Computed example of a mutant assay.
Amino acid sequence: MKQKSITIYDIAKEAGVSSATVSRVIARNYPVSAKTRKKVLDLIDKYDYQPNAVARSLTKKETKMIGFVLPDITNPFFSQVFIEAEKYALTKGYTLILCNSMNTSEMESKYLKILSERQVEGIILMGGRINKKLPDAVEVSEVSQVLDKLPVMMINGKIDGLHCHSVRTDEAKGMELAVNHLVRQGHKKIGLIGGVNGITTTDIKVEAYRNLLLKYDLTFRDSWQIYSGFDVQTGEEAIDKLLMLNKDKLPTALIGINDLVIMGALKACRRKRIKPFDFVGFDNTDLAKNSSPEITSVSHPYSQLGEKAIDLLINASKSSNESKDILLDPYLEVRESCSITKL
């Protein structure tokens, strides 16, 4: 018999037992004599028989699959968290199904429906609606409906009023690490670029930044805090706007809402042939490590984010109904972009 055509019925026929007996040997959920068990297992080994995963999931009422919805897999922050979660999930016998919503609520909605229908054991959400300060009622309702069927886990975001687990980096503390480092370097004029008002990850950083400037009695100017977006192009645009609004009173250091924004800022400064700033990024992605100069950046505890998310989701049915919100500490990776003060 060819390996590709082997079925449970073939194994049963050669062993001289019923297909139900073979199923019991595989599932180990019913007593079978040692002699019969050995005969079946020897044949399974002989033909390298792999039980059909779908059939097994229907029998056990589990699929060992977890849906993972994120807005943009090309963003190194999202991809790094996904990779860490995927690596850990595999050690637990689970497979992640990646759904890239391409930064649209409509695609998020579509994937939530698809994953629920495909009987995943839970869904992990990153970005999108869980980072909106005011998600619309439909977006909230859709997640609530999923929660009625299966557990939902949120990474670096949450939706007020929904009781589900979340794990996130303490981004306010991350901003504190960045500002503290720049102050120790002698900076008194610090700006912040990137992000979008109303996105919680931006709002948290902006509020922390402003509070820290007050704490250190440092100069704050509205024109030194530039909303622009989250990618390289918007980092370039932020520099253009900063220079336009501050022709004679520029900050000496800039913190980026993420590493992509800082990459854009560096690009704009090179294009304009100016070197007025020390830079600190956020996310500590490979871009920061491989840039020239290498960028000092606030790092998420990526492994912990991925592992905690998987553990909480897997154990959701075993835990109490009380939702858990785990806050993890970031750290600062110091590199060339602000290791020497340029004052």
Rank of each mutant, 00 (worst) to 15 (best):
N75L: 04
I190S: 01
V69D: 00
T169D: 10
Y30N: 15
I97A: 04
V334K: 08
I226S: 05
E139Q: 11
D278H: 13
P151T: 11
S144G: 13
S33V: 05
T201L: 11
L250I: 09
N29Y: 15
S166F: 02
D222M: 12
D283L: 02
D10F: 07
H187D: 02
F279M: 13
K132T: 11
N156G: 04
I83K: 13
L328A: 03
M263Y: 10
L125H: 00
V120N: 10
D217I: 14
T91L: 06
K149A: 06
N29S: 15
M175D: 11
G235V: 01
D311V: 09
K308I: 07
M175P: 12
P293S: 01
V54Q: 04
A27V: 02
Q233D: 14
L328E: 09
D72I: 01
K35V: 09
S33H: 04
G122M: 00
G186F: 05
S141H: 13
L266I: 14
I97Q: 06
K215R: 04
A288S: 11
S116V: 08
L70F: 03
S292P: 15
E176W: 06
G128M: 04
Q3R: 08
S297F: 02
V261H: 01
K13E: 01
V140W: 08
K92E: 07
I114T: 12
K308V: 11
D160S: 15
E108T: 00
Y88I: 08
M126I: 13
L98P: 07
E237A: 03
K110T: 08
K272W: 02
K39P: 04
G256S: 00
E108K: 01
N284A: 06
D222Y: 14
F277G: 05
I73Y: 03
S228Q: 14
G306L: 00
K13Q: 05
I97C: 05
T234C: 14
E236C: 12
L98Q: 07
V143A: 13
I314M: 10
R129D: 12
G198K: 07
L98H: 10
Y216Q: 02
K110M: 13
F279I: 08
R270D: 06
L245A: 01
D170W: 12
G306F: 03
K267D: 00
R37N: 09
T36P: 09
Q185I: 11
F230I: 03
K39S: 07
I123K: 01
K2M: 14
K38Y: 02
L328W: 07
K132I: 12
D217T: 15
